[in-house]
Amino acid sequence: MNSAILHFISPPIPYFVDCGHAYYGVGDTHIDRNCLGVFDLIVVRKGVLPIGENGNTWEIKEGEGLILLPNGHHYGSAPCKTDTEITWIHFQTFGSWQMCRDTNECLGNQLELIEAHKKAVFLNHADACSIFISKYMKLSLKAMEALDTFFQQDHEPQSLRNWKRQASFQLLLQYLDRDHAPPADAAAIRLAEQIELFIRQNYANDITNSVLQEQMNYHPNYLAKVMMKVYGMTPMAYLQYYRLEQSKRLLLQTPWSIARIAGEVGFRHTSHYSTCFSKKEGLSPLSFRSKFAKQR
């Protein structure tokens, strides 16, 4: 199923707003509205829902879903030909997002979107990651089960129900994110995540392509290929990126010297650390500390 991909950066994770059911008889059409202000996930539980957004049209069948954009024009593209039941979930995000033609376009724009996100939500020293969700999708059994939990909580008090629905929404996002990729991409994503996890757990140590080859049991060229596909950089480039990100935390949260911070995150030479940091951030480690950290 070919579909555009919605690419969200987190944290913060997109958050739940509201949910409900809607029913359409034969001849009924979806409501016409403009700029709803939230994302609208529509899942058809029975029948077929003809729907349009900004000139594009879909016929959403049972077990399928569509995410309508917060700034779009949504409307019924034709009357329903059969009795139709839908579940809808409204959600929103404070973070950066974009819609891409396919996964490759998402991955190609990933680093730029993450950097813009960090500046927009003041996450200068925090890790950020991507969530990929197909705009038009066939929901897996796990995703449908997660969807059902939203309405199993109707008997709960409102305060408790809202907490549980937020947790249910995050679980649903996980399934939608995992389900969007075709098998070939899914295998590459899993391997790239293993590389990323190893780097994250061992970044202060001496990591080389040979070390990664021994750990992952793949040739360095293939490891570089999957990392480029998923993270937009080679393993060695990601290692340097992650070391610099960790150094930001230490610059803001400790009074340690630049030399000590360089060593703590895996740089052998302070001068090399300072050069890499300045090239990436546009200011030196000391200037970064002065700009963002309260004077001690």
Rank of each mutant, 00 (worst) to 15 (best):
D206R: 12
L141C: 05
V48D: 10
K142V: 05
P14Y: 00
L49G: 00
S77D: 05
I207W: 02
H73R: 14
R190Q: 12
S77H: 05
I195V: 15
W58Y: 14
K248S: 07
I60R: 01
T254F: 08
Y218Q: 09
D148Y: 04
I195S: 01
F277L: 07
L147F: 02
K291Y: 10
V121Y: 08
D102M: 03
P255G: 15
W256Y: 13
N221Q: 12
A204W: 09
T29Y: 03
T84A: 03
E214C: 04
Q174F: 11
I207G: 05
I60A: 00
L41E: 01
Y241P: 04
Q158R: 11
N217G: 10
I60G: 02
Q153L: 12
K164F: 14
L147C: 03
K118M: 10
I13C: 10
F169I: 07
H219L: 06
Y136G: 02
E105D: 14
F277C: 08
P235A: 06
F94G: 09
F267A: 02
S210F: 09
I133Q: 03
Y75I: 10
N162C: 10
Q201I: 07
N162R: 14
I31K: 12
Q213C: 07
M227V: 00
M137Q: 15
V48N: 10
Q213L: 01
S10D: 04
H90K: 13
F277N: 04
C100N: 15
E112Y: 10
Q246L: 03
F91Q: 04
F277G: 06
R190F: 08
H125L: 07
Y24M: 02
L111A: 12
I261K: 06
H30V: 09
L113I: 09
T234N: 02
G263A: 10
K164T: 10
L6W: 03
A146V: 00
N205Q: 14
F150W: 05
A116H: 11
Q158I: 11
V265S: 03
M137C: 10
K280N: 13
R200C: 11
